[in-house]
């Protein structure tokens, strides 16, 4: 475990020493504060559109951070040749994959925490009663979703040599799932065979990332799912992440790496 943790800490250091996170945070803050400064009918109580915009930006930013940070892990290690001194140590390839996952997931989680603190601060400016429990659940579910995103992107980083190819494919796949994932069953009903079966198979096999999107509840001050449901969703995320990491390890463990 200490070896996995050692690999993870390097990934976390990489995130906060690169400038991407800061740029995305400033971007989110600027856009949110810009939205907040707009005067709508001189009503200072209007806040939901700001919450909506801020959460949307947080979703986009954290997805970009998670995907870009993860996608470059294995390809950059190969390109910079840092993989060789690393694998020359008593560390297995499975531990490298696990460490990379843990580092990317924790790094994304840290970024998520900073973004949510900003969100709560902005919301607190206009909403007298903050829904702490709802924010906590929303952040937790978001983080669980990022585990699947990191797992998927890490698998991509083992498959694709170029970082840009991996980032593009992962972004398309992840946004595709987020937009149409939960509607695939309804789309399938309207299709003829064999498209129908294929669409149904996709519906049941794809990781439903959109499940973890509870922004509507947070924005509109509606009750969030209970902790039991959140726990079940976490198990769902853990199962998918496990499968994705196992696939990444299967591909990486026998891969030839010539100096």
């Amino acid at each position: 475990m200490s070896r996995i943790w050692a690999v993870a800490t390097v990934v976390i250091k990489e995130l906060y020493r690169r400038k991407d996170f800061y740029v995305l945070f400033v971007l989110t803050a600027l856009l949110t504060l810009g939205a907040l400064s707009v005067n709508f009918f001189d009503d200072p109580k209007i806040i939901r559109y700001v919450k909506d915009i801020c959460l949307l930006l947080i979703w986009l930013s954290t997805l970009i951070i998670a995907i870009v940070t993860t996608a470059r892990q294995i390809p950059a290690e190969k390109e910079d040749r840092t993989i060789f001194p690393l694998l020359a140590k008593p560390v297995s390839r499975g531990q490298v994959i696990a460490g990379k996952f843990l580092g990317c997931w924790l790094a994304s989680g840290l970024a998520l925490l900073v973004f949510y603190i900003f969100f709560v601060a902005v919301t607190g400016l206009r909403e007298p009663h903050l829904m702490w429990g709802a924010y906590l659940k929303s952040m937790f579910l978001h983080w669980m979703m990022l585990a699947m995103v990191v797992g998927l992107t890490l698998l991509g980083s083992v498959i694709f040599t170029a970082v840009s190819a991996n980032v593009t494919i992962c972004l398309i796949a992840i946004f595709g799932i987020l937009v149409v994932g939960e509607h695939l069953a309804k789309i399938a009903v309207r299709q003829a065979e064999p498209v129908r079966t294929i669409t149904y198979t996709l519906f049941y096999c794809l990781p439903h990332l959109e499940l973890f999107d509870v922004r509507a509840q947070v924005v509109n001050n509606q009750p969030l799912p209970g902790w039991l449901d959140c726990g079940l969703a976490s198990l769902y995320a853990a199962a998918y992440t496990g499968v994705l990491l196992y696939a990444a390890w299967l591909l990486f463990r026998r891969r030839s790496l010539s100096t």
Binding site: K13, E14, D80, R81, F84, P85, A88, P90
Partner: peptide, 16 residues
């Protein structure tokens, strides 16, 4: 590899 040390020909390490 617990008791070995390795120096590659081209040395590249984490620049950050």
């Amino acid at each position: 590899r617990q008791r070995i040390g390795y120096l590659p020909e081209l040395t590249y390490y984490y620049k950050f």
